[in-house]
């Protein structure tokens, strides 16, 4: 999908932020639609069918989370949420409500572009490639095989399941709760130490410097993210 045809809906009440986002995004050859309230944003999303939405959680007329919830009732459009610092709860809530990723204000243009690329890349599920490669790691999702520099790496079932989840959502953050629910069921949602322990093992098997991981990144207080480059 070339950026030229890609439309981004920006829902933010701050005119300066909207202007800045427009300049930044148009410079990256996206088409930008603006909405200054949640209500208008939902209308625009329904009417213009954007390819992605950039949504500020702090809106005057309704909360960004409500916008997200209503949007998710009928649309799977990728959503990037803008939050302020020191609100991990808000970020987690947004991600759990169906946001694809978040960005903390203040943010740099490069960061915004990278995040947008990541959420836009989400292809229709039937086109999911069966082999994903990054660095010296190669993961064959169809064959359930993991190779590092050509040699097969043996992962336990849970380790593989965790890695798979991150690979499917590569470039985006996967919350702790999401991982725990999928791997251990809803009752294990608080046992984050499961994740920490398994992640340590996965990193030891895949990362060159397990304690300064390049690909398997931690999002403090939120979850993990697989970074490909």
């Amino acid at each position: 999908m070339s950026p030229a045809k890609t439309t981004i809906l920006v829902i933010d009440d701050e005119v300066q932020i909207r202007r800045l986002l427009r300049i930044t995004l148009e410079a990256a050859s996206y088409t930008v639609i603006e909405a200054d309230s949640g209500r208008l944003g939902l209308d625009e999303a329904a009417g213009r069918q954007p390819d992605a939405v950039v949504l500020d959680v702090g809106l005057p007329d309704m909360s960004g989370l409500d916008v997200l919830r209503q949007l998710r009732e009928w649309s799977k459009v990728p959503v990037l949420v803008l939050t302020v610092l020191a609100s991990e709860d808000e970020k987690v809530a947004a991600l759990d409500t169906g946001a694809d990723d978040y960005l903390t204000k203040p943010f740099g243009a490069a960061e915004l572009a990278a995040r947008l690329r990541a959420i836009l890349r989400r292809a229709p599920e039937e086109n999911e490639p069966s082999v994903v490669a990054f660095g010296e790691i190669e993961i064959d999702l169809a064959a359930r095989l993991v190779r590092r520099a050509g040699a097969e790496v043996r992962l336990t079932a849970k380790e593989y399941a965790m890695l798979r989840l991150l690979v499917i959502h590569r470039g985006k953050v996967v919350t702790h709760r999401q991982m725990l629910r999928e791997l251990w069921g809803p009752k294990a949602e608080e046992n984050t130490h499961y994740l920490r322990v398994h992640m340590t093992h996965i990193r030891q098997k895949l990362e060159a410097e397990p304690h300064r991981p390049r690909h398997l990144r931690t999002e403090s207080g939120i979850g993990y993210r697989l970074v490909e480059d």
């Binding site: 340590t200 300064r212 991981p213 403090s220």
Partner: peptide, 14 residues
């Protein structure tokens, strides 16, 4: 404070 299990390495890296 929301106490959760922390990995010291992750913490320092971040």
């Amino acid at each position: 404070p929301k106490l959760d299990w922390c990995d010291g390495h992750d913490l320092v890296n971040a």
